[in-house]
Amino acid sequence: MPAYSDKVMDHFKNPRNVGEIENADGVGEVGNPICGDMMTFYIKVEGDRLKDIKFKTFGCGAAIAVSSMTSEMGMGKTMEEAMLITPQGVADELGGLPKVKFHCSNLGADALHLAIDDYRKKNNLPPLVHGEQAHHDEETDDQSWDTAVDVVEP
């Protein structure tokens, strides 16, 4: 396991805003349990502000801490402001993430942005421009020692 910062451990052990919102105004889901991490974000919108944010996360310590921090960073912001939250910004607020966790587990901003997209679509509002994304799907691992199982399948 990687060494996590105190801030990551705090958000992992005491995650803020865990849960679901009944009749949420927008829902965003990223990842899947097969790749190890999955996050679902729920938002409640009032005017153009995020009145409430809740999340559920399946994943490692980093994934849970990232979700918690993203929800805190987005809370009360306007949707435009929330779209500016980036994976790098979330990692910085957490006092850094282990390199190996940055791409695969840093999906909170994506999930929040998708929830905002969902809200805007439902309300016939024009979509907002997404900030920098984690590009988790493009990340490949080329460490050769791990390619052992790529030999001829039975």
Binding site: M1, N32, P33, I34, C35, G36, C104, D141, D146
Partner: peptide, 22 residues
Amino acid sequence: SACTSKALKTSHVLLATGMETA
């Protein structure tokens, strides 16, 4: 689990036994 492995890959042993990836 994939997250605990340095390679972030699901265990080839569990997969070989037919374990569901999730």
